[in-house]
Simulated assay, not measured.
Amino acid sequence: MTTSIDRRVLGDPARMRVLASIDFDNPELRRALDRISVRTAQRTGLPVSLVTLVLNTAQMTVGVSGLDNWVTEADGTPIEWSFCANAVISGHPYVIPDAVHSEQAGNPLVTQDRIGSYAGVPVTLGGQIVGAHCIIGPTAHLFTTLQLAELEQAANEIAALFQQFSDLD
């Protein structure tokens, strides 16, 4: 369904402590993350942009633009369906230009929710990769270096916000 999910990485106690330090329910943080997601979608021309926190069993959607379905209602997905988990585990951008013809082809987000393309970059806090910032398209899409640079720049802003809304020193 997804590339190998390394639960040792996702469940690492140091990473989980950093995740637990983030006040992700803070309305001010959520509004700021939504604004970044809106801006990223606009600047990249892709209809959906998300900020996720990747836990050991689930992916939380903490910033969103352009997505109004069960994922936003549930505030995330099972970890087995998470594209963002691959960016967290690898520590590198995860790009799927054509989801239908990729290792993600059997993923319910592709087969049922019709994700056609995905690009996501890791977000780091306190030396730990805690989530990702991504853009999603309904069809196959070749992502440009400018689109990926926009994701990276926004991921740095997101990391700064997570720092501001965490109890890490």
Rank of each mutant, 00 (worst) to 15 (best):
E80I: 12
F165V: 06
T111R: 07
D6N: 15
S4I: 15
D75H: 13
P27D: 08
E73D: 15
T124A: 13
V9M: 03
Q59Y: 05
R31P: 11
P47M: 00
V48N: 07
A159G: 14
M60C: 12
E73I: 10
N86L: 10
N69L: 09
L33I: 08
A99K: 03
E152N: 12
P78E: 11
V64C: 07
L50S: 00
S82N: 03
L19K: 01
G116W: 00
S4H: 15
V110S: 02
I36M: 08
T124Y: 11
N86F: 00
R17T: 10
V123M: 02
V62Y: 01
S21C: 08
V71P: 07
L10Q: 06
V62A: 06
R35T: 14
L161W: 01
T139F: 14
L142P: 00
V100S: 10
E80W: 08
R17D: 11
Q128R: 13
D12F: 08
E152S: 14
G127T: 02
Q147I: 03
A140G: 05
S90A: 13
S166V: 02
Q164T: 13
V48S: 10
L55H: 15
G116D: 01
L151N: 10
L67K: 05
Q164H: 13
A74D: 09
P78T: 04
R17P: 04
R39Y: 12
